[in-house]
Design a protein around this nucleic acid. Sequence first.
DNA 1: GACGATACGGGACGCCCATCCCGTTTATCA
DNA 2: TGATAAACGGGATGGGCGTCCCGTATCGTC
Lengths: 173, 173
Amino acid sequence: MRADAERNRAKVIKAAMTAFATEGLSISVAEIGRRAGVGTGTVSRHFPTKESLYAAIVLAKVTEIATEARTLIETLPPADAFFAYFAYMVEEAATNRGLAEAMSGGGYDIEKAVDGTEEDLATLESTLLHNAQAAGAVRSGVTRDEVKALIGACVAVPSRTHMVEIVSAGLRP
Amino acid sequence: MRADAERNRAKVIKAAMTAFATEGLSISVAEIGRRAGVGTGTVSRHFPTKESLYAAIVLAKVTEIATEARTLIETLPPADAFFAYFAYMVEEAATNRGLAEAMSGGGYDIEKAVDGTEEDLATLESTLLHNAQAAGAVRSGVTRDEVKALIGACVAVPSRTHMVEIVSAGLRP
DNA sequence: GACGATACGGGACGCCCATCCCGTTTATCA
DNA sequence: TGATAAACGGGATGGGCGTCCCGTATCGTC
């Protein structure tokens, strides 16, 4: 790979990260190119479709989240780890419009984008949830999808921390 | 107003109601016209913009919901009325994709569309919430926006009734 | 330093959509 | 029944988007 190609690729990814985070998934590929200081052709050569660009961004973000999840699992008791992760995701999505839209099903499939990674966020989330349930901190029967939807609800509101309290109370047995 | 004009207007509204409910707000005006059995010109003459068509549909739906809310207020004790309304809205939004999208902020502003009606759904919702809080059935500090976001979360999930349980538990003091 | 391969830029293309327009049809009333 | 105003249909228009393409510029190597 040529040096300039790699540079431009990095520029596009960087621009796309902030663009998706601030403007959401509806931002145009041309605008991302403009912000990266490259032409639309350059963007589409590195990322043939908008979805593939989105997948690259999401993959990076998911890896970051997975690291946090693993840390929480290892350093906190099950109940605290789960609720800390919940609050962490809410804050993360609140400052990342693209992530929020993806989580509320508004855009592409976030699970599909990261399919085939060893960084299996789904597994980590299941672990957090099951451990918390085993510890009696979360009512049984609650699913990962339900938790995700509740995160989405917390993000959708200005008073996020208050919502997290309400929802956390509901999740407890 | 000519008789055929009124007939066509009704056909468009009827088609738009089911179209928005099943396909969501992204359905095209042309497709609504096709389903109503009229041309696109006819649709756009009765409803100059897509948003005005949407507003007409929403107004009808909101009137219906307001009637239900008023009935609940008058026939049930405050706590039951609130939670019954909550469950009602979840079911309503679950079978009406347009309504769900509007509530999760995906489309036009639902409040703006019904602005200036005497059917003030916002007031009724506030009454339901405040009465329930006064009766000690809902924790104080909860806002209408928070409740709406929680309704959205329940709709976003297949196991709606289970989610309603979780969320209701969280709303209680 | 020159040559071939590779990447770049941004215009071109095709698609979808909301809105507007106008020639044609239809309802209404004298 | 015939004239006229109103409404109809659907094609035209304009804008936005993702994707593709090709002449030009730059990189990396011999």
